[in-house]
Design a protein around this nucleic acid. Structure first.
Lengths: 199, 199, 199, 199
DNA sequence: AACTAAGCGAGACGGTACGTCCCGTCTTGAT
DNA sequence: ATCAAGACGGGACGTACCGTCTCGCTTAGTT
């Protein structure tokens, strides 16, 4: 089957995403309007809808782009590796925090994306898969540390990771507390060392 | 300051919140329409707007009401107390999960509320305060356990609590994984016992 | 039947009408808001509604007050008397012209009052009666001039007056053309002298 | 300039104006609701607002349409021509009289339009232009009669026309007196023949 | 002096419509 | 088949006033 008709203009994708990102960072999710993106990008709305079936889809694409492909390093020091990884996640979240609303404490955009994922089955599936992939790397990291004896043999890796990542999201979305390297270190310490008294 | 003018009709608040809750649980955040709530409640839109200046404000009020006043028990067994408390939080989140979107895994409504808190300074401040209050109780619980020697003397109570609560929110909003008593127990175990190998 | 209860405060009437007039002249009919008048007058809305059952009624009262009680002089010179009388009417209309809309050519307020008279049977009846009274004076003036031989014996006094007064209203409401003493003189000349060629 | 984008659907204009006219004639100006017109016309409110930026604009368009394009005949008999023309104007006004308010004597709708013209600069300009155009025809008619010797050489055509047209509007809007062919004849007689005694 | 009746300021209430915003779909003619 | 342009149906939002109502207080005349 040969491709027929006029080929898609890839520059449009680029322009649209760039402008959409600018709008979203400047005015937040609500300030991201398809009409305005189209106009500013000199593109037709139909052109946008051909690529992203929904404003939500476009927004997800925009955010996906903003988030660095957090590579995960394995130095053999699980504590340092975790801190570094958490810091990368935190950096991405803090970037969201700045979106719209002149740097409020809470990252509304993250909330909007959660909502978008709930509204559209495909977005939900997609983002869950992406998170699963990403988290699998972290779980593998933990697993290797366990195998080589740094961590307890019977640990609950999933719970451990949820605890640390979750705490970041919790602060960013709910309590509005800061999320930085210092906090990442506290988290890792608390999670790894345990909190019971030593017997 | 003396009260003047016709007093507000409290039954309106009651009726409106009840109907708004029903709408929101049945059809989700987007399905909560001020016009419809007003009509069904036999109230004028202006009456709603006198109480809640925005749909977002109403939605927050509705959810605040849905969440049981999670009392926190202190039995002296920190482990059990934490599990119980987390389970209560999980129950509230699971209730949100059911809202609209035919029981999707992710709680879109929670995301919407986070977004609302970011859109409106006052909502943000309010919800952060409420969370702070609620969390203070949990922190006090932990503190008492520390004092009586159940927990390490130098623990980071805040990090500890963020970890557990955050994990719940993370699952509900991000990964879509289940959140139940079993998971609460895993969380508490992981957080309290630590994950390093014993030296 | 003796008066019972607290007597009405006449100062309220005064204050309200003054403020309503100011609002109407400044911002036009639409800018006359019962809520605002009440607030500025330090009166309750109920107090206004006790006196004027409708915004329209208040507006009519305001305008009635603005229009000077055009006395009509009979000097024996019908031409001069008519010009003077028309000029008085024109002055009243020009005052309306200034209301709201930064001195537009057309007197919107007069139109609003016509509309109000159509909306409320009582206002309509009242204003028609007032006009009838006022016009009766002019008709009597014309009649006296006819009797003493200044005007044709078989003239149609009503048509004559309608022509002159009507032309003023027509300009003020419809064409927006100016209405001043010079125009009053042209009107009287045209109406009295006739326009056919002399045979 | 090439036409681009989807062309406007002229049938919408047609349908909307028809329905709006029906509503206005049946229930008067206040009974003309954009929401209702849109619904009955099966059009979106935005579609209406794209064409008429305001309810006032729509109302003016509706009325403009109701008024027959009064052609003006020139038979050489100025008296008859004027009577015929005035009768046409009267017919249009009487049609307005019936609008809403169960056939009141006063044409509230005409008043509303005058008010609308004062509220919106563009409407005012437009209607004044339309009246100017229409009146120019009548003035030309008068002028031709003057030239051919039917009327006085030094007559004031504008004043003459204002008198006759104005009298009609005056009755319709102010005194509520009837406006029919008989009255048109009285007007023309009075205006043409003059009212002074013959010397 | 107590009672009754109306007036009054304040402000909540039901109601109606407005004009706006934005979404996602469509129709057109040109590439 | 894609594109720019832009009209369209649809749905909700938040606003503005209207005219009515309920309060508690004030100001009289009546008993």
């Amino acid at each position: 089957m040969v491709s027929r008709g006029r080929p898609r203009d890839m520059q449009v994708d680029e322009r649209v995403l760039r402008i959409a990102a600018a709008l979203m960072l400047e005015r937040g999710y609500a300030g991201l309007s398809i009409d305005e993106v189209a106009e500013q990008a000199g593109a037709a709305k139909t052109t946008l809808y051909r690529r992203w079936p929904t404003k939500d889809h476009l927004a997800v694409a925009v955010v996906a782009r903003l988030q660095a492909d957090d590579e995960i390093a394995d130095t053999g020091d699980i504590r340092a590796d975790l801190v570094n990884y958490l810091e990368k996640i935190a950096a991405g979240l803090n970037r969201m925090r700045a979106a719209g609303h002149r740097q409020g404490p809470s990252a509304g955009t993250v909330g909007e994306l959660v909502a978008a994922a709930a509204r559209h089955e495909d977005i939900g599936r997609l983002t869950r898969e992406q998170y699963a992939e990403r988290n699998a790397l972290a779980l593998a990291l933990i697993e290797r540390a366990r195998v080589r004896g740094e961590l307890r043999a019977d640990l609950d890796a999933e719970a451990l990771f949820d605890q640390m990542a979750g705490a970041l999201y919790y602060r960013v979305m709910i309590t509005g507390a800061p999320v930085d390297r210092a906090y990442a270190e506290r988290l890792v310490s608390s999670a790894l060392e345990g909190n019971l008294t030593c017997h």
